[in-house]
């Protein structure tokens, strides 16, 4: 596992505050390789027209030349005036791809075929309708855990003729959390603080009492979706259980039998997820930080975030 990249966290370039609008100072434009090839073709045809003194040839060469010149304005304009309202990213586990959701809007005119990207890749081209909030997503691969500032997002377009490429680079003031990569294993803790040795979380049979259904929310464990009510067409509901046996576990960093810190964190991550899925009450003990037992999405995030930033300089 690669060591966390501290420098990436520390690196704080000029960042833009949102919302921001692409203006003339930020939008650049250059011919694409196709544009240069087109220019070469036109030049060859111009030489032909001069040689044969052919007015139709001149006319066509000049028409195509003018068209490409005009297309430059259209390309530039396609990007200008687009507003980025917000940028957000859901936390992901290391090694997965973080998805930035950009809320964008164009106050005037439809915008066609605009790509948003972070790395060199081929993004899907987006169309932005006039005066409508659109959401576009940008992918970025992650390698290690931590809290990172969103990198530079490039918005670009070649519309309409593909002869020119206009682009602008934004570095939104947005950070995202990358949890440690979960590594599956037994729910073993080695020697617990009390000195007793046990494997797994003691789950008391029958303690998981079904208490009712609640409206499904993104993030609820799939295993708890009430398929029965879904198949009846009632909607998506999640089964709720009371108590989860009433047990409460402390997931202890020092109790994980592993030499490598990153590996330990990964194991703890896995345990947090398992405990969450079992609807158990769990707490987290890290050197220097203890999170009291609890449950729910917010609690899970608190624990995972603590694991993500453990041992790193929090800025």
């Amino acid at each position: 596992m690669t060591p966390p990249q501290k420098q990436k966290i520390a690196k704080a370039g000029k960042s833009a505050t949102l919302p921001l609008t692409f203006n003339r100072r930020q939008v650049y434009i250059l011919p694409t390789s196709y544009g240069l090839l087109f220019l070469l073709i036109l030049f060859a045809m111009l030489l032909g027209s001069i040689n044969y003194n052919n007015n139709l040839g001149f006319l066509l060469v000049f028409l195509l030349g003018s068209i490409s010149l005009i297309s430059m304005i259209h390309t530039y304009r396609n990007l200008l005036g687009i507003k980025i309202l917000s940028v957000s990213a859901e936390p992901v586990f290391a090694g997965k791809t973080v998805l930035f959701m950009l809320a964008v809007r164009a106050e005037s005119g439809h915008r066609r075929a605009i790509g948003f990207m972070m790395e060199k890749e081929h993004p899907a081209l987006e169309n932005i309708d006039v005066k409508t909030d659109e959401t576009v997503s940008v992918n970025c691969p992650t390698r290690s855990r931590g809290i990172f500032r969103a990198g530079r997002i490039t918005a670009w377009t070649r519309y309409p003729l593909g002869l020119f490429r206009a682009w602008t680079v934004i570095s939104p003031d947005v950070s995202y959390v990358v949890y440690p990569k979960p590594i599956a294993g037994p729910m073993g803790f080695g020697v617990s603080p009390g000195g007793d040795e046990f494997d797994g979380i003691p789950v008391q049979q029958g303690a998981d009492d079904f208490s009712g259904l609640k409206q499904y929310q993104p993030g609820d464990p799939v295993g708890r979706i009430s398929w029965k009510s879904l198949s009846r067409g009632l909607g998506v509901f999640t089964k709720e259980f009371s108590g989860a046996g009433g047990i409460s576990v402390m997931l202890d960093y020092d109790a994980v039998r592993d030499a490598d810190r990153e590996h330990k964190l990964s194991r703890l991550t896995d345990m947090v997820l398992k405990a969450h899925n079992m609807n158990a009450e769990y707490g987290l003990m890290l050197p220097g930080r203890t999170i009291a037992p609890g449950k729910g999405e917010r609690h899970k995030h608190t624990c995972l975030k603590a694991l993500a930033i453990f041992g790193l300089n929090e800025s």
Partner: peptide
């Protein structure tokens, strides 16, 4: 785009320097 390009085309057509005779001596 064509409608916007045509004024430019006419200008280029009228003002782009013409030469007498042929450039490479090729003819059709």
């Amino acid at each position: 785009i064509m409608a916007q390009a045509i004024p430019l085309m006419i200008l280029l057509f009228l003002l782009f320097p013409r030469i007498e005779g042929s450039l490479f001596g090729l003819s059709l």
